[in-house]
Design a protein around this nucleic acid. Sequence first.
DNA 1: TATTGTTATACTCTATAACTATA
DNA 2: TATAGTTATAGAGTATAACAATA
Lengths: 141, 141
Amino acid sequence: MTDEDLGELCARATRRLAKDEQPLLDEHGVSMWQYITLSALAREPARSQLELARAIRYDKTRLIALLDELEAAGLISRRPDPEDRRARLVSLTPEGTQRHTAIRHAIRAMEDRILADLGPAARGLLRSGLRHLAYGGVAGS
Amino acid sequence: MTDEDLGELCARATRRLAKDEQPLLDEHGVSMWQYITLSALAREPARSQLELARAIRYDKTRLIALLDELEAAGLISRRPDPEDRRARLVSLTPEGTQRHTAIRHAIRAMEDRILADLGPAARGLLRSGLRHLAYGGVAGS
DNA sequence: TATTGTTATACTCTATAACTATA
DNA sequence: TATAGTTATAGAGTATAACAATA
């Protein structure tokens, strides 16, 4: 009865991580959503902007201005899909790949500092628990 | 290198929990922040609205309208502090306590369903890991 | 007729500053 | 002068609807 709700705890952890990531993102000149977008494209180029929006669970109309900025910064490229000229193929430029890698390293180092006194087993279970919360289903649904 | 960032993972888990909590909150007629406020007051009545705002890390100006609604719903009471007439003591009414307990039970049951196949040790480490992320400091700061 | 990308509009949420009453 | 509560206003963030091009 003295524990916080899991949701509240999770929300606080998220805000704390976001707060610690912000200065790193600022240094590299990208917003949180821009970094998430770069991460998604690093995993796999998008066959359309709509597919990309769904992959990162971001609004498709807001994604447009975000991609405009990333394109103007030379971090991504958009080109029409020859097989479906409505769609635009989105991928990282070499500079985009490089930028994403640099930011990722900085963020991982920050995470490692936060988790420093946790031990490998506890870290692993935290990660797998979070993955369960994020992606796992519920018994009976 | 194949893992997601901890921040992204945590954000997804938070959104998932919030999504699953929403229908429960709707049933009981309170918003997420209203529930967080009731939870804070259930732990301990507030000696001022400012103290309450800081405790839940919510903006003091937005808290006002939120408390207005909770007061109109008969879930909290505000009365001037006799020792400092600038401040207002905020506490749950009996109905507020009852409402909070009911919502809390519903949310805990939902959480238990999500965590059903996780085992007590994994649950405990998930909770302590999250608490570390949420409240823990960083080596060197 | 449906879908992709886009723009424009309206709406909500959040942050800032200013005011009052007390101290 | 500083603080608690409040209000008003401006800004950012978000959601909705509509349009052109293509399928």
